[in-house]
Design a protein around this nucleic acid. Structure first.
Lengths: 156, 156
DNA sequence: ATTGAAATATGTTCGTA
DNA sequence: TACGAACATATTTCAAT
C-alpha cells in the first residue's frame, strides 16, 4: 500500500454513478446513463477515470454467511507481550479464515480482530486452539456481537 | 431480517462461481463458464438458485475512502446507562454517516461501533458533538485503527 | 467531456436432452 | 442439471465536436 494517497475531486455525476454501483455492482452502465440523461460512453469514460484515480478498488458479490451456518460474529482484543513479535502474530492471524479484519490499534490491546464463526463452540475452539496458541499472545478479550444493526461503506 | 435462516448445500461448481464473483462482481458469466467448462446458461441457472437461497445478497463496488480524504478508522465501545434507551441510541448512531457498523455486544459495553473519519480532529468532533450527546450514552472507549491488515468476507 | 454509431461481447430465455 | 441456439442488451472503441 502507498504511504500517501492523492485525494480526488469528484462531481455530482460521478457521485451518482458511484452510488448506483456501490448499491449494485452489476447494474448496467446504460441503465445509469438513461437515468442520468447522458450517454453510455460518457459513463464509461468517467468510470475509467475513477478507476485510474484509485477511488474504485474493485467490486464484490456479497454473501450472507448465515446461509452457510456462520451465525456468530465476535471482536477480540489481543494483548501481545512483545512488540517485536507483532508482524509474526498478524501473519498467523491472517491464516485463520474466520478472521475477517485485523487492526493494529491504540489503547489497551495491540491488535483488534473481527471474526465470524459458526457458533459459540466454534468461537471457543478458535480461541483456544488457534489464537491463544500464537506465540506472543498473552491475553484476549472477547466481545460477541449479539446483533449487527448496520454494515455499510462510507457515504458519497 | 428473518429469525432463522435455512442453511444450504452448495457444490464445488457453485463455490467456484461464488469465488469468482466475490472477487470481481462484474466478471462476465461467460468467462466463468469458459473457465469451468460448462455453458453460460448453466451458470445463469445456478446463480438464480443461489440468489433464491438467500446466499447471494447483492453486489457492491468497493471504494477506497482514502482517496476521499477518509484516513482514520476507529472502534468505539459505548456504555449506555439504561437498556431501555438502546434502540433510540442505535437509531441516532445510524444517522451518523461516518458510523459504518453498529453491534450490540456482550462484555463491558452495550454497543460497539466502527467508524471512518477524515482525521483525528474529525473523530474528536464526532465524539464530542454527535456521539457523547446522544441521550443514554454515559461513557465511551475509543480505539483507533493504526493500520488495517485485513478486510475480507468469509471464505467459501 | 460528451456524443452517436459500429463492432464485439454478454445476458437471458426457451425448447430439448 | 445442463446444453445450444436465438434473441435482446450491454460494453467498448472511435471519430467528431
Amino acid at each position: 500500500m502507498k504511504i500517501t494517497d492523492k485525494t480526488v475531486e469528484i462531481d455530482g455525476i460521478d457521485k451518482e454513478i458511484l452510488r448506483s454501483l456501490m448499491e449494485d455492482a452489476r447494474k448496467p452502465i446504460l441503465e445509469i446513463a438513461r437515468k442520468l440523461g447522458i450517454s453510455g460512453a460518457a459513463i464509461h469514460q468517467r468510470l475509467r477515470k475513477l478507476e485510474a484515480s484509485g477511488l474504485i478498488t474493485g467490486s464484490k458479490f456479497i454473501i450472507n454467511p448465515r446461509i452457510l451456518g456462520y451465525t456468530t460474529m465476535a471482536f477480540i482484543g489481543i494483548y501481545l507481550d512483545k512488540a517485536m513479535r507483532n508482524p509474526e502474530a498478524v501473519k498467523q492471524l491472517k491464516e485463520i479464515p474466520e478472521v475477517l479484519e485485523c487492526h493494529y490499534t491504540t489503547g489497551n490491546w495491540s491488535i483488534l480482530i473481527k471474526l465470524l464463526c459458526r457458533d459459540n463452540e466454534h468461537l471457543m475452539t478458535l480461541l483456544n486452539h488457534k489464537i491463544q496458541t500464537i506465540e506472543g499472545v498473552s491475553r484476549t478479550e472477547t466481545f460477541i456481537s449479539l446483533n449487527q444493526q448496520l454494515d455499510r461503506q462510507i457515504s458519497i
